[in-house]
Each structure stands twice: as structure tokens, then as C-alpha cells.
């Protein structure tokens, strides 16, 4: 197919049309040979960002490894909606042990593959933000520190969704959850709390850390593919809106994810051995209101006192400065 020398973007999205790309550059999902590793028929909610992120990520990993992937999964929505007994959506060897040990179980699998000299088989660990930034953090940090040959994928929907939307250390300031209700003088999740796991991962000096979003699926696939080409501990933090927990429309999942990027609230970057090596610049900066107003978890911020929104705007602006997201 001949490439046209003009930059075509889908109207209003800045996403390059898949059909205009050279075949080798097209998304894995566009290819009929995709593995459907997380097959249809699972029980995720409509518009679930986690299901979308996992499908893209694992299929990309499968392509990159010639279908040699074993995955572990922490307890959480992805685990529950994909494997209700006696059914499973997984077309790959997959294992769930408990909530907090997905990284360690993956380490064990990688160790077994190493003694068995199956170097072509690669291991992926998956968890939600709670399973990653909170309860699974010690196991994850250990896996990083030892530089075990595992790619860890965190599907960040910014709360404990599977148990009914409670706060995690990845819940953003201001957000309403079942345990940070929108009542009292400081409604929603407190400002000045939480942790940034990609930066913590980078502090371990591991070979590869990246952030990705279901709004930039091509970028997500590319990052997974790149990660699969690297040995040692790797981490990709994937932003996955949850319509149920966020109070957003299932049809707005991609839009909400895109606005998180374009406001600067969720910077997209890659880091190697602790240093940022690439970032996706924001072409068209959007004020945070645009992002917040699509989600009921932030509805209480739109009262008379808009100071919380201003504070969230400050966070976005700081991210843009800190990660250099302004387009040159």
C-alpha cells in the first residue's frame, strides 16, 4: 500500500488513521491474526477501560513474543470478570494466586522458566492500582529491585473497583469514592496524598518504565512491544477509566482517558534505567474542568467554591512543567 505524504488525523482526535499506516505499523488489534488473548464473553461492565487495556496490552505482548506469554493476575476486576468458574476468557496460560502477590508469582514463573531453559517464554504480571500501589507494593518493589525478568502491567482505574469503589493510594485528590465520600468540609479524596508509582518504579533504576493510556492504544501497543524486547524488570502503568466507579458514560471511556492526557493530569512518558527518555507532548492543552465534568466522582467540585478545581489545575500545570509536555 502506498503511503500518502500528508499527515492525516482522525477529525478532532489527533490519532492517525490506522488504514493510512504502513502495514507493519498498524495496530495489533487491526490484524485478523491477533490472538484475542483476553477473549470476548467476559463479564466486564460496558465501556470498561481495564478490559480494553488488558486486551491490547496482552495481544501486543503475544505478537512481540510469537505467542510465548504466561501471565499472572492479582485479585481485582480483571481477574473476576475474566474467570468466573467454569469459564475463562484467557487464551494464554494464566494464573491468579492472591491479591498482593502477582509480581512474586511472576518472579517464580520466570525463575522456573530460567532453570528449564525456556528463554523464549516471557512473563507478565497484571494488577489493578490497588493490587499494585498498595497491597502488592512490597512484592512489586522486590521484583523490581532484583531486576527479575517480568513485565508488570498496572491497570490504573484509581480505586478499588472490584470491592465497590474504595479509595486506593492511586485515587486522585478530590475524587469521591465509597470511602472518601463527597461530604464534610473537604469532600472527596484529600489533597496532598497518594503516590506516583511510575516515578517510584523509576527510582528502582529498572530497564524500562512507561505510562500508557487506553486513549492512545497504538502507543500502548508500541510500549508493550518495546518492553517485551527488553530483559529484566519492566513496568507499564496503564490509565484505564472505569465508567462504574467514575460515574462516566461507558461511551466516554476513550474520551475521558484522552482528556486526562490532554489536561496534563496523566503524563505519557517512557523511562530507561531511571531516566525519562521520551514523552508524548500535549498538542492542545485542555483545562481540567473538561475532564472533571464528565465524571460524577468529581461532581461535588462544581459548587460555588471552585477552589478544588483550581488546585487540580495546578497539579496538571505542574505535571506539564515537570515532564516537559508542552509541545516545542
Amino acid at each position: 500500500m502506498s503511503l500518502q505524504p500528508v499527515k492525516f488525523y482522525q477529525t478532532g482526535t489527533f490519532t492517525v488513521g490506522n488504514r493510512l499506516l504502513d502495514e507493519s505499523l498498524r495496530t495489533v488489534q487491526a490484524n485478523m491474526q491477533r490472538t484475542n488473548s483476553l477473549n470476548s464473553g467476559h463479564r466486564a461492565c460496558q465501556g470498561c477501560g481495564e478490559a480494553l487495556g488488558a486486551r491490547y496490552a496482552i495481544d501486543a505482548a503475544m505478537r512481540a513474543t510469537k505467542n510465548r506469554v504466561i501471565a499472572t493476575n492479582a485479585t481485582g476486576c480483571l481477574e473476576v470478570f475474566s474467570t468466573p468458574y467454569p469459564e475463562t476468557s484467557w487464551q494464554i496460560p494464566w494464573m491468579h494466586s492472591v491479591f498482593g502477590n502477582a509480581a512474586s508469582v511472576a518472579t517464580g514463573i520466570a525463575a522456573a522458566l530460567k532453570v528449564k531453559k525456556k528463554s523464549d517464554v516471557r512473563v507478565i504480571a497484571q494488577g489493578g492500582d490497588g493490587g499494585t500501589t498498595d497491597i502488592g507494593f512490597a512484592c512489586l518493589s522486590g521484583m523490581f529491585e532484583r531486576n527479575d525478568d517480568v513485565l508488570y502491567l498496572c491497570y490504573d482505574n484509581e480505586a478499588y473497583m472490584n470491592t465497590g469503589v474504595q479509595r486506593s493510594s492511586a485515587t486522585p485528590p478530590g475524587a469521591r469514592t465509597a470511602t472518601t465520600p463527597a461530604v464534610g468540609i473537604h469532600p472527596g479524596n484529600a489533597f496532598g496524598t497518594g503516590k506516583n508509582l511510575p516515578l517510584i518504579a523509576m527510582a528502582h533504576q529498572i530497564p524500562y518504565v512507561a505510562t500508557a493510556s487506553v486513549a492512545n492504544l497504538h502507543d500502548l501497543e508500541a510500549k508493550v512491544e518495546k518492553a517485551m524486547g527488553i530483559c529484566g524488570a519492566r513496568y507499564i502503568h496503564i490509565y484505564v477509566p472505569c465508567p462504574l466507579g467514575w460515574g462516566s458514560s461507558p461511551s466516554d471511556t476513550i474520551k475521558v482517558a484522552r482528556l486526562a492526557v490532554e489536561t496534563g493530569l496523566f503524563p505519557l512518558f517512557e523511562a530507561e534505567h531511571g531516566e525519562i527518555v521520551s514523552r508524548i507532548p500535549i498538542r492542545n492543552k485542555v483545562p481540567v474542568e473538561e475532564y472533571l465534568k464528565l465524571q460524577k466522582r468529581f461532581a461535588h467540585l462544581f459548587g460555588e467554591d471552585r477552589s478544588a478545581i483550581a488546585m487540580i489545575q495546578e497539579i496538571a500545570d505542574r505535571n506539564i512543567r515537570k515532564f516537559g509536555l508542552e509541545e516545542a
Binding site: I70, T72, M95, S97, V98, G100, N101, S104, V105, A106, T107, G108, I109, A110, A111, A112, L113, V115, K116, A138, C139, S141, G142, E145
Partner: peptide
């Protein structure tokens, strides 16, 4: 880094046939 991890690693390794 902990006993929880120790047994979890063993769980993974055993599941992969080691």
C-alpha cells in the same frame, strides 16, 4: 523481600513446573 513473597515465588515456580 518477605515470607509472603517467598511462598508466592514458590507458588509461581511450582505452577510453571519447577
Amino acid at each position: 523481600e518477605s515470607e509472603f513473597a517467598a511462598l508466592s515465588v514458590a507458588i509461581g515456580a511450582s505452577s510453571a513446573g519447577a
